[in-house]
């Protein structure tokens, strides 16, 4: 049973990312979108990156660029940028979806 985790809020103002991280299992998919893109520069990001061998981590490109959030420094093996269309496809390939916001 895989979960698609949608992170839509900034960990600088909420606890949502922290709670999400405690509920991540092997093969889960995690997407940063909307204000969730700001988490790229949050200390909790390290915990997510540490899990990158067991999960897939994505960021919605347009949402990041709209906020001038730069993720070029992060290797593509750790973080993949996706379109909204690809996000929709992810909702079908996981068993359930949780929105953390």
């Amino acid at each position: 049973m895989t979960i698609l985790h949608l992170i839509r809020s900034s960990a600088f103002s909420s606890n949502d990312l922290k709670q999400c991280i405690s509920n991540i299992e092997h093969y889960d998919n995690v997407v940063l979108l909307d204000d969730g893109c700001y988490n790229i520069n949050h200390p909790l990001m390290k915990q997510l990156q540490d899990k990158s061998s067991m999960i897939n981590l994505y960021i919605v490109k347009d949402h990041a660029q709209a906020r001038a959030v730069n993720f070029d420094d992060i290797s593509k093996e750790v973080l993949n940028s996706i379109t909204m269309t690809e996000l929709v496809a992810l909702t079908f390939s996981n068993d359930s979806v949780v929105t953390w916001q």
Binding site: T2, N23, I24, S96
Partner: peptide, 17 residues
């Protein structure tokens, strides 16, 4: 525990937060 909690959550088909 946190990890047991996560596993129980993953065992559900629909999760509403």
């Amino acid at each position: 525990t946190t990890s047991e909690f996560s596993k129980e959550l993953h065992a559900r088909k629909i999760i509403l937060r």
